[in-house]
Design a protein around this nucleic acid. Sequence first.
DNA 1: GCGACAG
DNA 2: ATCTTGTCGC
Length: 236
Amino acid sequence: MTTVRIPADWPATEAEARAVQDELRGRVILDEPGPPPGTGCVTGVDVAYDDERGVVAAAAVVLDAATLAVVAEATAVGAVSFLYVPGLLAFREIPTVLAALEALHRAPGVVVCDGYGLAHPRRFGLASHLGVLTGLPTIGVAKNPFTFAHAEPDTPRGSTAPLFAGADEVGRALRTQAGVKPVFVSVGHRVSLDNACAHTLALAPKYRIPESTRRADALCRVALRETVARPGPPTP
DNA sequence: GCGACAG
DNA sequence: ATCTTGTCGC
């Protein structure tokens, strides 16, 4: 597991962070369909926190898209780099997530983030940000609708309803299990919304949350516990 | 102005 | 995100 330092130029204030989003937003690529679902690899990323100690742990888990078998995984830990502010989540997670992705010794394929991409107050959520920084195809799959409006998708698995920010369609509510609360899918970088939903559905054959996110969630919790329970904290 | 608000 | 017991079900 690698340890990361907060970048020297990391935003310190909310205004600086918003300015970074406004600057990077223009680099998002929205006109590529992305890799076909069910082929190649898909990578889930997630983080866990110990706010008392200011420690964050990230995990990246690579799955074979066809079988959902785990083919690679990596973790990273570091100091919390930003406080949680709705709309600025990426600044809390990205340094450690980047380190985990870099520790992977294979191509991640599509990266599935636990949060939003285009569905964001400034249309630049975690998945968009991670995509621009890495150049990788990314999508966002969130568990809550945030501030966005949506109709209830039909009961069958695979049903969708558009997610609206005012009149803009910024994503979809996707029912991954019949009769169970939907997840909220939005485009990150270099993947179409149709493909993002297809990937998400393929990753959730049995549970509401995509297998990629479930695996990454479990792994980053282990990584957090191991570093917190060990002498010699990673905080310089 | 007040509250809500991805993780 | 995180704090938390028991409980229902495969």
